[in-house]
Design a protein around this nucleic acid. Structure first.
Lengths: 201, 201
DNA sequence: GCCAAACTTGCACACAATGCAAACTTGCCC
DNA sequence: GGGCAAGTTTGCATTGTGTGCAAGTTTGGC
């Protein structure tokens, strides 16, 4: 069996079981069985059940953020992020992403796993930003900006997942939310405008 | 033994061992021994070694973000966050926070644990923001803003930890970095100013 | 058909985590 | 100061995780 095929078989089985029994509702043995491999082989591919379940997220983030290098160097960062993250994505993929994202509620393990994935995406973004911004930008700026951008993406994803709760994987929802949240970030969240003491005006 | 005292004994022992052998460099049995309790008792207090090691972070974040409720309702959010997060903190505590934060390098487990702690801090912040901003603010805004603020705090912490690497727990470093990164956030990171095509100017 | 490389498997082992019921400790009331 | 009740600790048993290792099995090229 091809290595890639095995990997797919495992993560597919993991997703299936997670749907049926909830993430964390089954053991590695069960999963290995369902995927048609031995327990040992499972561990050759994934270090934990959660890693297998979260693979769609990992692939999405990996794909998106490594496409960042291919963007023109003089493109404003925000546009580059929009282009890579918000790029073409099938209804299918979007649905899975939202689904897995939503499973976080039921499994702290899965939640941590996803947090880690987003975190390593942020690190990739920091690398990209460092290159783009050059010496002009301090470490602090790079980190805060990367973190904020990722936070916007997460917010967009979460909100998209919420609206898709009643089974409606709207593929554009994420894209629009992403656009909106990054717009907010761009304007400093109108921080100076909102929540001022009423007597100000 | 008082419950609180046991808790402290355990997390103190955990910190000590983590310093000596690295996080993840020892087993629960060792830790339980060092803390003077049984293995079973350890698990009555913490679900994992990492949770015990990361307790200082947890306490810091819990403390900071629950103080958020006590801030005047008409205070601008950013100021409130600065006041709660950047508030009084001893050299001692700062040093420990940086130390634990830095240990993430050596232990994915510990890294995930801390990510989760920051994440639940973000959720507290979201609740606070929802109250403060009222219906005027959509979910997306609240999430993106909370995420960005937390990202700034993390960036400040990380940068403070970096400068403290050569043993220099500078207590103000974090506060200043926090101030700076939130200033950046406020101005939308000058996104429209930096990294434009050179020919623009 | 054979060989080497790639891949899978079983086994053994150390450790994590939790339920349960039996101990032990503490403070307090009479 | 005996004894009760609540709070706390412990041992034991059990199930599951994750990894090294060495022996299998498959695959493709020659």
């Amino acid at each position: 069996m091809n290595k890639q095929a095995t990997r797919n078989a495992i993560s597919a089985a993991a997703l299936k079981l997670a749907r049926e029994q909830g993430p964390g509702g089954f053991t590695v043995d069960t999963l290995a069985d369902a995927a048609g491999v031995s327990r040992r082989t499972f561990f050759n591919y994934f270090p934990s059940i959660e890693a297998a379940v979260a693979r769609p997220i990992e692939e999405f983030l990996d794909g998106a953020f490594s496409r960042l290098d291919e963007r023109p160097a003089d493109e404003p960062i925000v546009d580059a992020v929009m282009a890579t993250l918000g790029g073409d994505m099938g209804r299918e993929q979007m649905a899975v992403l939202c689904e897995v994202y939503a499973m976080t509620e039921d499994s702290p393990q899965l939640e941590r796993m996803q947090l880690q994935l987003w975190n390593s995406a942020q690190q990739k973004l920091e690398d990209g930003l460092t290159v783009r911004l050059g010496a002009a930008a301090g470490e602090l700026l790079v980190r805060a900006l990367a973190g904020s951008l990722v936070a916007c993406a997460k917010a967009a994803m979460r909100t998209a997942a919420d609206s898709a709760a009643g089974r409606n994987p709207d593929p554009l929802s994420f894209h629009n939310h992403l656009l909106e949240s990054i717009g907010l970030l761009r304007s400093g969240f109108n921080i100076n405008g909102i929540n001022h003491d009423p007597k100000d005006s």
